[in-house]
Computed example of a mutant assay.
Amino acid sequence: MTKYLNSKKSGILLLVLLIASLLFALYYYVILPKKDEVRAKEASIQSLQTEIKSLEQSLTSFDEQLEVPMQETLEMQKKVPSARAVEQVLRDMVEIEEVTGTRMESLTFNNYDEPVANANVDQTNTVAEAEAKVNEENQENTETPPVSTIAQENIPPELKLVTFTFDIGALTFDSMVTFLKEVEKLERVMKIDTINMTIPGEQEKLDKEADHTIKATVQITTFYYEGQE
């Protein structure tokens, strides 16, 4: 009986040892490699996350560096557009005329490439009327078109000139000065080439029926850059 019990205990012990060996083998050959693989993947993921953060920082820095030239380019395009934009010049002149209480009596363009009548201009109301008046006067006017005082050989070939001259009337000298200052304040670069002003004399001021309007002939040159995208 004792031998039977000892034999049974030995069998159970061997079974336990066998199960323990199988569990150890399972852990060592299956579970442990999987854990190592998981650790390796976690390390790889962490490394990728670090690289992603580094790339994001680099992209942010690049965007910030790129944003400055883009802003500068946009600002420059406001000052020197990539097209003649004659219609915008007309709009600006009409707007300044209304704000300052002055009156433009004639307007003649010379954009060195083609007459204003052939330009691609989409305008309405006052601007359209102003351009129609300009075109009509240009057709009737046999005088030489305005020529800028800037020597074209001294500027880059991509930088084009648009010169225009106009007669303007104002009831006061301050209104005339305000008109010219408003022209200089425009975002687009406007160079006032010449100003020929006529001011009523003392006798004309005393004569109630005389024309007291201060008149001036102004020539202005603006620019556009053909090389811009």
Rank of each mutant, 00 (worst) to 15 (best):
G227P: 07
S148G: 00
T73H: 14
M70W: 15
R188V: 02
V94T: 07
E187P: 14
F223G: 04
E67W: 06
K79Y: 03
N120L: 12
E105Q: 15
V147A: 08
N120R: 13
T178R: 11
I52H: 05
N154Q: 12
S10G: 13
I220S: 02
F179T: 03
S10H: 12
Q88N: 12
A170T: 00
K3A: 11
S58V: 11
V68S: 10
I168K: 01
E143H: 09
I192L: 03
L66C: 06
L22M: 08
T144A: 11
T198I: 08
Q219C: 05
E37M: 05
K34L: 13
L206W: 05
F179L: 05
G201A: 02
K160S: 03
Y29G: 12
T126W: 09
N154H: 09
T213S: 01
A43C: 04
E187N: 13
K41S: 14
T198W: 05
Y225S: 10
G11T: 12
K34V: 12
P81R: 02
T194K: 07
S47I: 09
K181L: 13
I45L: 10
L14K: 15
P115Q: 03
K8D: 07
N196I: 10
D92G: 03
R103I: 06
D174H: 11
K3G: 12
I12Q: 11
V68K: 10
D113F: 11
L55E: 11
M104C: 03
T163W: 00
M76G: 08
Q65M: 08
A25D: 08
Y27S: 05
T217D: 09
F166I: 03
L107W: 01
E204S: 07
K215G: 04
K9P: 07
S175W: 01
R188L: 02
I12S: 12
L206C: 07
A151G: 10
T172R: 03
L55G: 06
G11P: 08
I199W: 00
N118V: 12
V16Y: 07
Q65A: 15
